[in-house]
Amino acid sequence: MCMAVPSRVVAIEGLTATVEAFGQERQTSLLLLGDEVAVGDYVILGAGGTFAAEVVPEDAAREALAYLAQVLADGQA
């Protein structure tokens, strides 16, 4: 499944953000986003993770992360 993992923005430098999800940090481009992004926001990344695809509200991101944690715990991932 092409599941997206919501990632929390932990730093921004220019149009590149450092994002974190499940303890892993990575860098992603913010060039394709229409919304302003701030540290603490959640984004979902496109395939390969090079570009952030969308900003998601915190409650939706937390809900998705809780589900994905369940997927991990259940051994589906």
Binding site: C2, A4, A47, A53, E54, A60, E63, A64, Y67
Partner: peptide, 11 residues
Amino acid sequence: THLLPTLFALC
């Protein structure tokens, strides 16, 4: 249906 759009970035 509320969860699906956040879980699937491309589709």
